[in-house]
Amino acid sequence: MIKAIIFDFDGTLADTLPVCYYAFQAIFKEFDNVELTSEEIKVCLVHLKRESLERILLIQIMTKQLSSIMKNTVKNITNLSLRMKRYNCCYIN
């Protein structure tokens, strides 16, 4: 019976970052014939992380704006429908 599970967040129990750098170096060398230093890989990873966060934030902002626009549109359509009904205009119910 399992009594405990240990999660290793990098640097807690083992420092696996050098292994990650080595893996990236091997992949770039094999597939692109490019040799990168650990520092170059680190810069790429930091850039990717920042870019991913910026995309997530942009999506969240756009979702909030779209939600607000949709709420206003529904409100405007509802108001227009009520006015049309009040003046006996043709409207779609």
Score class of each variant (00 low, 15 high):
residue 20 C to W: 02
residue 53 L to T: 08
residue 18 P to K: 05
residue 50 R to Y: 08
residue 3 K to T: 13
residue 78 T to Q: 05
residue 38 S to Y: 04
residue 52 S to Y: 11
residue 21 Y to A: 09
residue 22 Y to M: 05
residue 76 N to K: 15
residue 58 L to E: 00
residue 77 I to S: 05
residue 16 T to G: 05
residue 15 D to C: 02
residue 59 I to T: 02
residue 70 M to N: 13
residue 62 M to S: 08
residue 74 V to L: 13
residue 53 L to N: 14
residue 21 Y to V: 06
residue 72 N to L: 13
residue 19 V to R: 09
residue 46 V to Q: 08
residue 35 E to P: 02
residue 76 N to Y: 13
residue 75 K to P: 00
residue 29 K to W: 06
residue 15 D to R: 01
residue 78 T to Y: 12
residue 16 T to N: 10
residue 50 R to S: 12
residue 34 V to A: 13
residue 32 D to F: 08
residue 49 K to Q: 14
residue 42 K to M: 06
residue 36 L to N: 06
residue 30 E to A: 12
residue 92 I to H: 01
residue 37 T to R: 07
residue 44 C to W: 08
residue 4 A to M: 11
residue 34 V to Q: 15
residue 64 K to H: 10
residue 66 L to P: 03
residue 17 L to K: 09
residue 75 K to C: 02
residue 26 A to Y: 14
residue 45 L to G: 01
residue 23 A to C: 15
residue 72 N to S: 14
residue 25 Q to W: 04
residue 36 L to E: 04
residue 3 K to Y: 13
residue 90 C to Q: 14
residue 76 N to C: 12
residue 75 K to E: 06
residue 12 T to C: 11
residue 10 D to Q: 10
residue 5 I to R: 13
residue 92 I to W: 00
residue 58 L to Y: 06
residue 92 I to K: 04
residue 22 Y to R: 04
residue 51 E to C: 01
residue 79 N to R: 08
residue 81 S to Y: 12
residue 51 E to N: 05
residue 89 C to N: 07
residue 47 H to C: 09
residue 8 D to P: 02
residue 40 E to N: 07
residue 50 R to H: 11
residue 71 K to R: 14
residue 58 L to M: 06
residue 55 R to Q: 12
residue 71 K to W: 06
residue 16 T to I: 10
residue 42 K to G: 07
residue 12 T to K: 06
residue 89 C to F: 14
residue 60 Q to W: 00
residue 49 K to V: 06
residue 17 L to F: 03
residue 78 T to R: 07
residue 5 I to P: 02
residue 29 K to G: 03
residue 47 H to Y: 14
residue 19 V to W: 12
residue 43 V to H: 02
residue 38 S to H: 09
residue 69 I to V: 12
residue 76 N to M: 13
residue 47 H to T: 13
residue 60 Q to M: 03
residue 17 L to P: 02
residue 70 M to T: 10
residue 68 S to E: 12
residue 71 K to V: 05
residue 57 L to H: 00
residue 88 N to V: 00
residue 14 A to E: 01
residue 80 L to W: 01
residue 91 Y to W: 04
residue 32 D to V: 01
residue 83 R to N: 13
residue 73 T to N: 15
residue 52 S to V: 00
residue 19 V to S: 10
residue 66 L to M: 14
residue 68 S to V: 01
residue 56 I to F: 00
residue 57 L to N: 07
residue 93 N to Q: 07
residue 78 T to N: 08
residue 82 L to V: 06
